[in-house]
């Protein structure tokens, strides 16, 4: 045991170790602070925090878990992209291959269950933030960003729902996207759509309304699959990560996790 400890200490003194970690082992206050400050990921946190803000009965840990599940979904999603082709010809057989041919194939399972879980953790995070009044000044704007992130979470799941290209996928998305038909002014069966005319030419038809834009067609088919795939893998995650950065940054800027007596606006 002593020998391992010695060689470990030797290692931490090497120039290579020091080039990576700019501090000693976090055994004293100075190095505990440096451990947070010199690491880009830990740097999301402040160095010190009020005890109340750490307690799991206060935070429920739901925001952190939502982010963790997002990471799990990203990693498993990237791995799934190696196997999956978003065409009506290949999508479903690729699903079968994933469950039957991929060695230790758990990625689809992990992706699906994490996706369900992430929606639940996001909702519970919102519930916690509401019940602790944490949306109140100075955190109003960050609540708004959080609401957008929640909507994006649902849209991420909704676009992903189509990709297995089985009956559940196709019809759930059909039911969901049929609603777009009734969008006021922009859906072919929405109120006010008849008013959208140029001369006698109707602007809103089944081939030009908001549902057509969403599905790239009049029904859920090849176009919709590609569109949902791009939105699911690139489009929405791109916006999501940007807003996530704003969300985390604002938590820090607005005074860290909420707590009593921390209501006032912060000086710059």
């Amino acid at each position: 045991m002593g020998r391992i400890k010695n060689s470990f200490n030797e290692l931490t003194r090497s120039s290579m170790w020091k080039s990576v970690f700019r501090h000693k082992l976090p055994r004293d206050d100075k190095n505990r602070a440096l451990a947070i400050l010199t690491n880009v990921f830990f740097h999301l946190h402040p160095v010190r925090i009020r005890k109340q803000g750490v307690r799991i009965s206060y935070t429920w840990c739901m925001g952190g878990l939502s982010f963790f599940l997002f990471l799990v979904l990203t990693v498993t999603g990237i791995l799934l992209m190696f196997y999956y082709r978003p065409t009506t010809q290949h999508a479903y057989p690729d699903m079968l291959d994933l469950s039957e041919s991929a060695t230790l194939g758990l990625m689809r399972e992990m992706h699906r269950w994490s996706a369900h879980l992430m929606i639940i953790t996001v909702w519970l995070h919102m519930l916690r933030v509401f019940l602790t009044g944490s949306y109140k000044p100075p955190r109003e704007f960050n609540w708004v960003v959080g609401v957008v992130l929640m909507v994006l979470t649902l849209l991420l799941s909704f676009t992903g729902y189509l990709l297995p290209w089985d009956q559940l996928a196709m019809w759930a998305v059909t039911v969901g996207s049929n609603m777009a038909r009734a969008t006021p002014f922009m859906g072919v069966e929405g109120p006010g759509a008849q008013l959208m005319q140029l001369g006698n030419v109707p602007l809103i038809t089944a081939g030009s309304d908001v549902r057509f834009v969403l599905l790239a067609g009049r029904f859920v088919g090849e176009g919709a699959l590609l569109r949902f795939y791009v939105l699911h893998c690139i489009g929405i995650p791109f916006v999501f990560v940007l807003l996530l950065a704003v969300h985390f940054w604002r938590v820090r800027r607005d005074g860290g996790i909420s707590g009593p007596g921390k209501g006032g606006p912060l000086p710059l």
Binding site: P26, R32, I49, K51, G64, G259
Partner: peptide, 24 residues
């Protein structure tokens, strides 16, 4: 949440990092 004890500050490493790590 506002008692004298709860207002004390703790270091994020290890107090918070460990909770986060164990939860995930």
């Amino acid at each position: 949440e506002d008692t004298k004890e709860q207002k004390e500050k703790v270091f994020v490493w290890p107090d918070l990092i460990y909770i986060e790590f164990l939860m995930l």
